[in-house]
Computed example of a mutant assay.
Amino acid sequence: MTILDQLNEDMKEAMRNKEKQRLLVIRSVKSSIQNESINKGKELTDDEILTVLNREMKQRKESLHEFEQANRQDLADKTNAEIQILTEYMPSQLTEEELQQVVNETIEEVGAESKADMGKVMGAIMPKVKGRADGSKVKELVQQSLS
Rank of each mutant, 00 (worst) to 15 (best):
V103D: 02
S145V: 05
L99P: 01
S32H: 10
T2S: 15
N17E: 11
M57W: 03
S92C: 00
G135M: 10
I49C: 04
Q34G: 03
E88L: 15
D10P: 06
L24K: 11
Q34S: 13
I38S: 03
E140V: 03
K42V: 02
D47R: 15
K115P: 00
E105V: 07
I49D: 02
Q21L: 13
V25A: 07
E97P: 03
G111E: 06
K58Y: 12
T2N: 15
K58D: 13
D46W: 02
K78W: 00
S147N: 15
V110E: 05
M126W: 03
D74G: 07
L94N: 06
G131D: 01
N39L: 13
E88M: 14
M122S: 06
K137S: 13
T106E: 07
L53P: 02
Q84G: 09
N71F: 05
G41T: 05
T45S: 15
E43G: 03
A70S: 12
L141F: 07
Q34K: 14
A133L: 08
E97R: 11
E105W: 09
R22I: 05
L141A: 04
N54C: 09
K40R: 12
L7I: 10
E13C: 09
T51P: 00
Q6L: 13
S37F: 04
A70Y: 06
Q69Y: 10
Q84C: 06
T106Q: 07
A14C: 05
R132G: 00
R27W: 11
P91K: 11
Q100F: 06
L75V: 00
A116Q: 12
I49M: 08
E68N: 15
N35G: 10
A14R: 05
E9T: 09
P91W: 09
N71R: 10
K137E: 15
E108C: 04
E36G: 04
E113C: 00
E43R: 11
D117R: 08
E66L: 12
L7K: 09
G119A: 14
A14Q: 02
D10G: 07
M90D: 01
L146N: 03
N80C: 00
T51I: 08
A133D: 08
K18E: 07
G111C: 08
I83Y: 02
A133E: 05
E36K: 13
E88R: 15
